[in-house]
Design a protein around this nucleic acid. Sequence first.
DNA 1: ATGAAAGCGCTAACAT
DNA 2: ATGTTAGCGCTTTCAT
Lengths: 337, 337
Amino acid sequence: MRVRLEDVARAASVSPKTVSRVLNDEANVSDATRKRVLAAMEAMDYRPHPSARSLAGSRSFLVAMLYDNNDNPASTYLAEIQDGVLEACDEHRYSMMVRPLRMRGDDFIRRLDTLISDHHPDGVVLTPPITDYAPLLKRLRERNVPYASVSPMQRNGVIGVTMDEQGAARAIVEHLLALGHRRIAHVIGIADHGASRWRLAGYREAMAAAGLPEDPALVVQGAFTFGSGVAAARELFALEQRPTAVFAANDDMATGVMWAAGEYGLKVPHDLSVCGFDDTPLARQLWPALTTIQQPSREMGKIAATQLLNLLRGRGPGQLVQVPFSLQIRDSTARVP
Amino acid sequence: MRVRLEDVARAASVSPKTVSRVLNDEANVSDATRKRVLAAMEAMDYRPHPSARSLAGSRSFLVAMLYDNNDNPASTYLAEIQDGVLEACDEHRYSMMVRPLRMRGDDFIRRLDTLISDHHPDGVVLTPPITDYAPLLKRLRERNVPYASVSPMQRNGVIGVTMDEQGAARAIVEHLLALGHRRIAHVIGIADHGASRWRLAGYREAMAAAGLPEDPALVVQGAFTFGSGVAAARELFALEQRPTAVFAANDDMATGVMWAAGEYGLKVPHDLSVCGFDDTPLARQLWPALTTIQQPSREMGKIAATQLLNLLRGRGPGQLVQVPFSLQIRDSTARVP
DNA sequence: ATGAAAGCGCTAACAT
DNA sequence: ATGTTAGCGCTTTCAT
């Protein structure tokens, strides 16, 4: 049979309400009593019934992780974030639910409403690119559902986790500059994603700092997919003055660039240096292995969730934590020919 | 304010219990009454409170998807399965929870127990390789938690979804044979995974059918990772009689084989044909693109979950459904040199 | 600092 | 075919 709160109360010779207070870290329990209750819980392996808690109280102890499975970034990225969020939830004894939400399609908000009405999550974790989807944020605020974001664009008053993406992009371009490259191209990601903007800004900043005027022909639009990387590279390779290096805004597009290089008989890194962003498993598996930016996705998921949980548990307002990146120099970049 | 079952009852001029019956598709409600209640629910946008339902009743309307995040297959594979499971759960108005469980590590069963005690899932969906982890299955049966599996090894009395992996492996080896290859090597996956066994069996079957005696030197152990594919290929390339084709038990190892081929100056597919299994996104992104077996992972997740839900909802015993594979012939395989 | 009573929204068991 | 009553295991409110 299930051990109930009442059983613990009896064992500790206190009232159910006192056990409840201990369970919820509430005030007005003497240290001695608290210890006794905690010991009883432990001894009886007491597990509060989540449904009873959420039915009686105002909280569901549920966190929902929302992601876009349409415009979606690499699935490994999301999988790592998910694992991190889950770890944080486990530590705080919250349960987690995942919700794919298609940003395109007008049932987005309806599906969000359904989620909230059906499951009453105490808070949600937002992942790119829906971290800045205005109708979503608006609805969450209207319905009073707190949220934390992973790499949000708009950083004011938002809690969660960020990385200095612009600084990272700058660092990778500086790496290319240090190798003697001057004609460095950039393949942009999906236009309105924060990731695309920051990475482009970092590229521009590094180029400008090196005194190189921007050549518009070297900056081409992509869409974060392998295919868009191939297409972008073909454009670049058709130029009279080909770039000697290409910085693609993510690893998938960088892979496409390497593919296209093969088509054009260009050897990487001998004839062309290529680098990406994200450090997906793919990066290490390519030949040559891809120079890229590593971001601690799993850790980022955990941090975002932790900030949310701190907020939910009344442990202060929550912050926007910045995590460090690391430049992974591999074999796809070399000195300019 | 929340619309409660009682409110619907009042609106439809019936007792709460009758509304409950309609909600749960129970018998003993006249068609006319049912219609009236349904209309009232619809009009009031009634949402049953999951916590109240699971507290009062014996069911939680919760399905947990268990996966191994240690020995874990490609994350894209799991992500697709997860999406499929989620879709099925949504359709049946069940909620879903994901649980990574490390197969190595003795807290596996403890963590499973915690999951069951804390959340009382009505059933679980098992993904490879934990579909056949005996202590897990034993515990699930002991605790009376029904489960459905994706690609289980042991198929008797199990519900869920399978693919003819052996047939698929045979098909891909037959493809190599048709290209004139005779010295065909195989890189095995993690030894006790069903996937590894079936793929090896299919390889052997096709080779035997072609009248080729097995050359033990051509069958090497891998571990489903890129690195293990590299190592296996190095062994193979060091042989006096090198293989002209390599069938690796998954795409990651096939990628490793292609990498190693580069090290040895072997051109794929000119000097060496390589093929994999799974059709991960990687397969299309490699150069040359990888010949492999496509399995409908998302669909498989959905089917497994649907079988479980049918069982849970008393819609028959549930089945083990077999889905078709498809051989994706790309550019990494060609006629024998 | 602690406890007693009421009730969260639903379903089980038992009427009728 | 439908209704009544009594909880499920907790938290709330209000006492003490």
